[in-house]
């Protein structure tokens, strides 16, 4: 049984659906990338999994249990953490305060807090050097690292990362993806959302979404050799 099982998910804003029955699995221990053009419905998919949006129909099963109507706080306590699109840091709080707040759902567990803090420092030495800097004054790349680091602070079983590479130089984007691979290797399952096909080498498997439906599921290697890239990701991909 997969860690995350999404079945026939229909989600919309003000009743008008933008996801038309999306089904996919994310296996325990893998790094999966959800690719698609702008407006395909990727953000809607992951924010629904994170509990920010309620589906009109369909089901989400996580770790063997079906997730009913639930708030983000229940999801994060249950092991699903989202690094949201646009980073959404707390700009006038410091790097270390942002990280501490990432562990809000485990704030009474000081051992986990310390362990995750050490882990995040290890993943992102750049953040460790800037602990007392206000998040809003970090560079774009550092802000993205902090967004991922903050999401890791709750010690998730499933880490969702929405468009980590947005607005970053190719080198900085690669740095973030490399850490994603390490996070996966350390045992956290990862689902990352990307428009940038440069993320493919860092993923075990790819899902491609178009206009609110999944149009392709396959292993990354396969995708690299097939012309699907051009068909679904645009010529620039």
């Amino acid at each position: 049984m997969a860690l995350l099982e999404v079945r026939d998910l229909v989600v919309g804003y003000d009743q008008y659906p933008v996801l038309h029955g999306v089904s996919f699995d994310v296996e325990q221990g893998e790094c999966c990338v959800l690719l698609g053009l702008n407006g395909a419905g990727k953000t809607t998919t992951v924010t629904t999994v994170a509990g920010m949006l309620q589906p009109q129909s369909g089901s989400i099963t996580f770790d063997g249990k079906e997730l009913r109507k639930g708030s983000p706080s229940q999801r994060v306590a249950g092991g699903i953490s989202l690094s949201p699109e646009g980073r959404r840091l707390f700009p006038r709080l410091t790097v270390s305060q942002n990280l501490k707040l990432g562990a809000w759902s485990r704030r009474r567990d000081s051992k986990t807090l310390k362990r995750q803090m050490d882990l995040v420092r290890d993943y992102f030495p750049r953040l460790a050097e800037r602990e007392n800097q206000l998040a809003g004054t970090l560079s774009g790349g550092e802000q993205q690292m902090l967004a991922v680091g903050r999401a890791m602070m709750s010690r998730p079983k499933l880490l969702l990362i929405d468009e980590a590479s947005l607005g970053l130089s190719p080198t900085v984007a690669r740095t973030v993806w490399e850490v994603t691979s390490r996070i996966k290797a350390d045992g956290t399952t990862v689902l990352m959302v990307e428009q940038n096909a440069g993320a493919l080498p860092f993923a075990d498997r790819a899902l491609i979404m178009e206009k609110g439906t999944l149009v392709y599921t396959g292993v990354g290697d396969e995708l690299r050799t097939v012309n699907l890239r051009e068909a679904y990701l645009g010529s620039g991909a």
């Binding site: 994060v76 700009p91 809000w104």
Partner: peptide, 17 residues
């Protein structure tokens, strides 16, 4: 800190619980 977080970025505050 939670009060400040919610004031600065409500969506992210909800996401961290």
């Amino acid at each position: 800190l939670a009060i400040q977080a919610a004031q600065q970025e409500a969506t992210a505050a909800e996401l961290v619980g």
